[in-house]
């Protein structure tokens, strides 16, 4: 469904992504692990289209999308959530979701009708809000909600475009244990045919939701396998030594 072929990217002489290849099956849940500075976010930006790779290709559903811009990839069904909240600050939660839904449904250019009062769009908005637990907050402006709620909305916006591939950049960064728990539940309620790639620091989440795990270090894929294989890998253990001990 989503494939990276020999992706390379350097900033000046600093090689941040080095010959990265992997392939996700339809409906697969993949977690990318790696210490800080391993090039996870750069890889993510290349997949989403915000950065162009120096060489290599990104394929979605077998189609080469390397040359496509962010918006064009999104229209093909590739959605992303951000590590740092990237929301429509002064608008309400409902308006945030409606903008995403309307754009995904091709209603962003409607001149004769209002997307905020459209029944079909409202339904998708309710679905997305329900999925991320924001049903009660729909009419609250984003500027007035807590950080945790913003994290939920961050994922909600990505989900509300009804993507076929969802990229999530550290969806639980900075939130408390309660919310991480809620996120685990969300992951299990996602439609099974949705392909998901998550960048994570949190081991528990990775082992809980992942079908397969890819480990990056210094921009390279150093390991790929099932959660069990990952747990048993001495190399991964070494890379992650500090964090490993803290978690396991």
């Amino acid at each position: 469904m989503l494939e990276a072929r020999s992706l390379n990217r350097a900033f000046g002489s600093l090689v941040v992504t080095k010959d990265v290849s992997f392939a996700l099956d339809k409906g697969e849940r993949r977690v990318v692990l790696g210490p800080n500075g391993a090039g996870k976010t750069t890889l993510f930006n290349i997949l989403a289209g915000e950065l162009k790779p120096s060489s290599g290709a990104v394929l979605m559903g077998g189609r080469d999308i390397t040359a496509l811009a962010v918006a064009a990839r999104a229209r093909l069904g590739l959605a992303r959530s951000y590590q740092k909240n990237n929301l429509f600050g002064e608008l309400t939660v409902r308006e945030n979701l409606a903008l995403a839904v309307a754009t995904a449904r091709g209603a962003a250019g409607w001149i004769m009708r209002d997307t905020l009062s459209d029944a079909g769009i409202a339904e998708d908005v309710r679905d997305a809000a329900l999925a991320v637990g924001l049903t009660e907050m729909l009419d609250v402006p984003v500027d007035a909600v807590s950080y945790g709620v913003r994290r939920q909305l961050e994922v909600g916006i990505a989900l509300s475009t009804r993507p076929s591939v969802l990229l999530m950049d550290e969806p639980t960064s900075g939130v408390g244990p309660g919310m991480i728990q809620a996120f685990h539940q969300l992951m299990h309620t996602l439609p099974r045919e949705l392909t998901v790639l998550i960048i994570e620091h949190d081991m528990d989440l990775a082992f809980d939701v992942a079908d397969r795990i890819t480990v990056l270090n210094y921009g390279e894929v150093v390991f790929e396998g099932t959660p069990d294989e990952t747990r048993g890998s001495p190399m991964v253990r070494e890379i992650y030594l500090g964090e490993w001990d803290a978690h396991a």
Binding site: A48, A69, V70, A71, A72, A74, R75, A79, R80, N86, L87, F88, G89, E90, L91, E95, A98, L99, A100, A102, T103, A104, A107, A108, G109, W110, I111, M112, R113, D114, T115, L116, D118, I157, T161
Partner: peptide
């Protein structure tokens, strides 16, 4: 007050995110 107007406001508030959800 149309969908287009909403989109326009979306661009003002966060152009990058409008792109990310698929807007030209």
């Amino acid at each position: 007050r149309s969908g287009f107007g909403r989109t326009l406001v979306g661009i003002r508030v966060n152009e990058a995110r409008m792109k990310a959800v698929g807007l030209t």
